[in-house]
């Protein structure tokens, strides 16, 4: 009986609290839609962030994985979600879908909240490759673009190959003539690369780390303005092409268009605090993910930049004609 009483009064008190603060965001559980399957990079980073956010926001967070169609299904769910701030989602480079006719996502479809992760793309070769530095590789590609196969680590026109193609475009290479090879994720590309099926691969450094340690592949350059932690000996692409190169993936939280301003504010501050927590920083570092903070306004600018860059490179690659 005693237990029952305690329990009943606890429920009563909690119930009162719920009523009293009902108008304060968030008053009930939150949902984050992840347009990626369980266990992938997008899922892992979001789950680590969500664990911190649950503490910050004081409500449980449900993660919904919708990785079908390379993320199109999940992004559509975010775009069509009720804009009450209770459902947000993971945003990542999305502009490429437009050029392959899969979907047409625009910055205006989403409310940017905050960016929390960024990883740079890199250009990899197999150990047996004749190329030991970026310059010789780029020169060879310039001389005979159709003679080489480059693996995209996923669908082509996506996060890893577009920045590399952009760099090649600036170097004066006819990127449309290169054989861009699509595949299922970075792992399939690494097998192709080490078995001699392709000449180059574009991927992030952490994805290739174990094969780099095994001496099966090496990175010619990373597309980052400063050295990547843990991979300090990988040369920066900017040193070869003469101007800083920064390209790769970014992961951010965003909601459907028209999310209430106070909800955006609450989410943004919670993410800012989560990113400052020692636990989150350590777990991201251990798992090999880079931290990159951008607030709502900066994220909006990044998304606009991303759409412009993608349009330029995809146009040069011959898509959307």
């Amino acid at each position: 009986m005693g237990t029952f009483h305690t329990l009943a009064s606890a429920v009563f008190v909690v119930g009162l609290a719920g009523v009293a603060f009902a108008d304060e965001f968030p008053a009930r559980p939150l949902t984050i839609v992840v347009p990626a399957g369980a266990g992938g990079g997008g899922d892992t980073t979001t789950r680590m962030l969500a664990r911190e956010l649950e503490g910050e926001l004081g409500q449980p967070i449900t993660i919904i994985n919708q990785g079908q169609g390379g993320g199109v299904v999940g992004l559509t769910s975010i775009r069509n979600a009720k804009a009450d701030g209770y459902t947000v989602g993971l945003l990542f480079p999305y502009a490429g879908y437009k050029f392959t006719g899969q979907a047409d996502f625009k910055g205006a479809d989403f409310t940017p909240v905050a960016n929390f992760n960024g990883d740079s793309s890199s250009l990899l070769v197999a150990e047996s490759s004749p190329f030991t530095d970026l310059k010789s590789a780029l020169d060879a590609l310039k001389a005979d673009p159709s003679g080489f196969n480059v693996h995209c680590s996923g669908g082509c026109g996506s996060v890893w190959d577009i920045p590399v193609a952009g760099m090649m475009l600036d170097y004066g290479i006819d990127v449309a003539k290169i054989n861009w090879i699509p595949g299922q994720g970075a792992a399939s590309g690494l097998t192709e690369l080490s078995s001699g099926g392709v000449d180059f691969q574009t991927a992030s450094l952490p994805e290739a780390a174990s094969l780099m340690q095994a001496g099966q592949v090496r990175a010619l350059a990373v597309l980052s303005p400063e050295p990547v932690a843990g991979f300090e000996d990988v040369p920066l692409a900017g040193d070869t092409v003469g101007h800083p190169v920064d390209g790769g993936t970014w992961r951010a939280i965003g909601g459907p268009a028209g999310m209430p301003a106070e909800a955006v504010e609450v989410w943004q501050e919670a993410i800012r605090n989560a990113m400052n927590s020692e636990e989150f920083r350590t777990s991201m570092k251990t798992a090999g993910f880079g931290l990159k903070w951008l607030d709502s306004a900066q994220l909006k600018a990044l998304m606009e930049q991303h759409e412009a860059d993608t349009a330029r490179v995809m146009g040069a690659l011959g898509y959307g004609k």
Partner: peptide, 18 residues
């Protein structure tokens, strides 16, 4: 198991049910 099943009318108190 945290499968995101809809709570319907229970949404506002679902915080205590997860």
């Amino acid at each position: 198991l945290h499968v995101p099943l809809p709570w319907g009318p229970l949404t506002s108190i679902s915080g205590w049910l997860i």
